[in-house]
């Protein structure tokens, strides 16, 4: 306690600087968290949040008893790992190229163009996917036909969809993520590169021994940040591409789409909150574990 007071006095300016943000989160994020209690009630309008009947873990039953919780969790985690790892790697590669190659105009245009998919809503992405892969006038099947090859009915097979989904997810986030790495590269002091050049290092050596090590903290940070949401799927992505097509669920169903469909019949705020709580706890446990390991090995890479 005395330590806290001493710190408050000592760093009072910094506390003042951070205070607005802390107040913001207390009000807009922590206050509404009382709503987590919905997960344990049978909601009624008469009772409201605290007056409704307490029913313990009942709202979680629909997740557990369906028997698909494990496969849903697995699907969600695997998809997110693919998005996070592949996405970050590709963004990293693009950022390094953009930072190093000559040609100002080319670089500027490329960067802007890479950002375009970010603006395309998932509704339109869904429409694109259908236009590419459907069996009647889909672009791919038309091409196959023109080449004299047999068509392929994408909507009758589950296997290609994993790749399609991963592709579009990475495609959409590419420009966004690249900027983060680009900004990180820009913050690396020029003197490192100058020194390396004088030592006679070629471009690959410079990237390997300067750029990449300097980007590792950012890379680790972005991965860590994403891990917390490992059980939260990109609902729009899956819903707009797969929709309610039960044919494809086997390899494309994630927790968010599952919960959405569950509650579409009979919306229940308690069950919705319960599902969210499961996702949050899973993410929290994962982040705390990974952060702990990182903290033990490289303290300055840790998130907190």
């Amino acid at each position: 306690m005395r330590r806290l007071v001493a710190e408050l006095v000592h760093n009072r300016v910094m506390f003042l600087m951070i205070a607005p943000t802390l107040i913001f989160f207390s009000v807009f994020a922590y206050l509404p968290m009382v709503g987590i209690y919905y997960a344990f009630t049978n909601f009624s309008f008469e009772g409201g949040l605290f007056g409704s009947e307490f029913i313990g873990w009942q709202n979680f039953r629909f997740l557990v008893e369906s028997g698909s919780l494990w496969s849903l969790t697995k699907n969600t985690v695997l998809y997110n790992l693919a998005f996070i790892l592949l996405g970050n790697l590709l963004q990293l590669v693009c950022a390094i190229f953009l930072a190093e190659i000559p040609g100002k105009l080319f670089k500027k245009t490329t960067q802007s163009v890479m950002f375009l998919p970010y603006f395309i809503s998932f509704v339109l992405v869904g429409a694109f996917v259908f236009n590419l892969f459907n069996s009647e006038n889909g672009v791919i099947n038309t091409l196959l036909q023109q080449l004299g090859l047999p068509g392929y009915d994408f909507y009758m097979h589950t296997s290609p969809w994993k790749y399609i989904i991963v592709f579009f997810s990475i495609w959409k986030g590419l420009g966004y993520g690249t900027i983060i790495y680009l900004a990180a590269i820009m913050s690396i002091g020029d003197e490192y590169y100058e020194a390396a050049k004088i030592d006679g290092a070629n471009i690959f050596q410079r990237i390997r021994s300067i750029t990449i090590p300097m980007l590792v903290p950012t890379f680790v940070l972005l991965i860590l940040l994403s891990l917390g949401g490992i059980l939260k799927g990109q609902f729009d992505l899956f819903y707009q591409i797969i929709g309610n097509n039960g044919m494809l669920f086997e390899s494309t169903d994630i927790i968010d789409t599952y919960v959405y469909r569950s509650l579409a019949v009979n919306f229940d705020i308690g069950m919705g909150t319960a599902a969210g709580l499961y996702q949050s706890f899973f993410g929290l446990a994962l982040v705390l574990t990974v952060n702990y390991i990182i903290r033990k090995t490289r303290e300055d890479y840790a998130l907190f």
Partner: peptide, 27 residues
């Protein structure tokens, strides 16, 4: 209001979408 069977309602609906719809559409 399905209150007492809400777990079953959601589970049945899942099965319907995953297995029932493709079956009924002859796919």
């Amino acid at each position: 209001d399905y209150q007492e069977v809400k777990t079953q309602v959601t589970a049945v609906n899942q099965v319907f979408q995953q297995y029932g719809q493709p079956l009924m559409m002859g796919l």
